[in-house]
Design a protein around this nucleic acid. Structure first.
Length: 311
DNA sequence: AAGAGTACCAACCGCGCTCAC
DNA sequence: CGTGAGCGCGGTTGGTACTCT
C-alpha cells in the first residue's frame, strides 16, 4: 500500500502564488506561526493550497530574513567548498549562508555557479592533476607491494585534529584509538594542506568541478571493482560508489574534515567496497598505500558484521 | 518581427526519516 | 514493535524572460 497523499491534489490550487495568497499566508504565520503542522495550516489560514506548498512558499520566498540574488564572491566560495566536500546537500550548504535557502543555492549552482567554475583556471588545474593521477595510478596487484617510497620518509602525511592535537600516521597506524574529526592535514615537516574535493561521479572526472590541487600530497582511493583499478581513482572527497562508504568520509555539520573511523570499521568499509586508500606525492608521483587493504582482509574475515561508524 | 533556443527560478514530486500512537 | 502522518530534503519540471538567428 502506498503512502496516503497529504491532501486532495485535485482540489487544491497549484502553480504560482498570487499576491493575495502570499499576504494571507504571511498574515496567518505572523499571527499564529505554523503551529508545527503545515498540513492543517492551509485550512486554518483559508488557503486552497497543499500544506507542503505553503511551507515551501514561506521558507523559500516569504520569510522576512531571505536574501534574493546577488551572490557574493564569498558566498560562491562557501558553496563551492561545501559542494566539493559534501556534494549536493543543499540544506547543509544553506545553513552556512544566512538568508539563503537551499532551493536558491541549488538553482544558483545548477544555472550559474557550475558554469562559472568550469570556466575558471581552477578547472584546468584540477583536470591537469586528475589526468596526472590517472596516468600514475598503479595496477591493482602493485598496490599491496607498493610499500613506502623513500620520498615519503619523514614527510609522510598524517592526520591531525587541530583542536585535540591528536594525530595518526596512516602508514604505521591504522587509525587513532578513538574516532575523531580531522580539520586539516599536516606533514611531519609541518607542511599543511587541505582536502581536495571535487565531488562528481568518477565517470565525469574530466569535466568535474573542483577547487584545485594545491598541495604536495593528494589523497586518492582506487576502486578495483571497476575495470581492475587502472584509470579509476577517486581523489579524496569524491562521491564514493555507495552512501555507506560516504558515511565514513562525510563531514559533520558545518565542519569540513575527514571522519576517521575505528580501525576495524575503516578496514571493513574499505574492504567492503574494494577501496584502496593511499597518498600520492605530487612532486614525484610516488604512491603510498597504507596497510588498510591487508588489514581489511583480516578484519573482514573475522568481523564481517562491523558497522561503519558515523558518530 | 518572429520563431527557436537558452537561462533562470519558483514550485512540485516523491522518498526517507522521525516521532507519536 | 509496527504503522502511519508529517516534515524535510534533493531532484525535476514547467513557465517565463531573455537572447540569438
Amino acid at each position: 500500500m502506498g503512502r496516503a497523499p497529504c491532501c486532495d491534489k485535485s482540489r487544491v490550487k497549484k502553480g504560482p502564488w498570487s499576491p493575495e495568497e502570499d499576504t494571507t499566508l504571511k498574515n496567518y504565520l505572523h499571527k499564529h506561526g505554523s503551529g508545527g503542522n503545515w498540513i492543517a495550516l492551509p485550512t486554518k489560514a483559508g488557503l486552497n493550497r497543499c500544506g507542503k506548498s505553503c511551507r515551501l512558499r514561506w521558507l523559500n520566498y516569504l520569510r522576512p530574513d531571505i536574501k534574493r540574488g546577488g551572490f557574493t564572491e564569498g558566498e560562491d566560495k562557501v558553496i563551492c567548498t561545501l559542494y566539493g566536500t559534501i556534494g549536493s546537500r543543499w540544506s547543509i550548504i544553506a545553513s552556512q549562508l544566512p538568508g539563503r535557502t537551499d532551493n536558491d543555492i541549488k538553482n544558483y549552482w545548477n544555472t550559474k555557479l557550475k558554469k562559472k567554475l568550469l570556466a575558471t583556471n581552477n578547472m584546468n588545474t584540477v583536470d591537469t592533476n586528475l589526468s596526472q593521477f590517472s596516468d600514475s595510478i598503479p595496477k591493482t596487484e602493485t598496490l599491496h607491494d607498493q610499500g613506502t617510497p623513500s620520498c615519503f620518509d619523514g614527510t609522510l602525511p598524517y592526520l591531525k585534529d587541530v583542536s585535540s592535537g591528536q594525530s595518526f600516521d596512516p602508514c604505521t597506524q591504522i587509525s587513532p584509538s578513538n574516532p575523531m574529526e580531522v580539520n586539516g592535514f599536516e606533514t611531519r615537516e609541518g607542511k599543511s594542506f587541505s582536502i581536495i574535493s571535487p565531488s562528481q561521479e568518477v565517470s565525469s572526472l574530466p569535466t568535474s568541478s573542483g577547487l584545485g590541487l594545491e598541495n604536495n600530497y593528494s589523497i586518492w582511493s582506487g576502486n578495483e571493482g571497476v575495470d581492475n583499478v587502472s584509470g579509476v581513482l577517486m581523489p579524496f572527497g569524491f562521491e564514493p560508489p555507495n552512501d555507506d562508504l560516504l558515511d565514513g568520509f562525510a563531514e559533520e555539520g558545518t565542519r569540513l574534515g575527514l571522519r576517521v573511523l575505528e580501525p576495524k570499521d575503516m578496514a571493513t568499509s574499505f574492504a567492503k567496497f574494494n577501496i584502496r586508500f593511499g597518498f600520492q606525492c605530487a612532486e614525484c608521483s610516488n604512491l603510498v598505500t597504507p596497510h588498510f587493504a591487508e588489514k581489511a582482509d583480516e578484519m573482514t574475515s573475522t568481523n564481517k558484521d562491523s558497522k561503519i561508524l558515523v558518530d
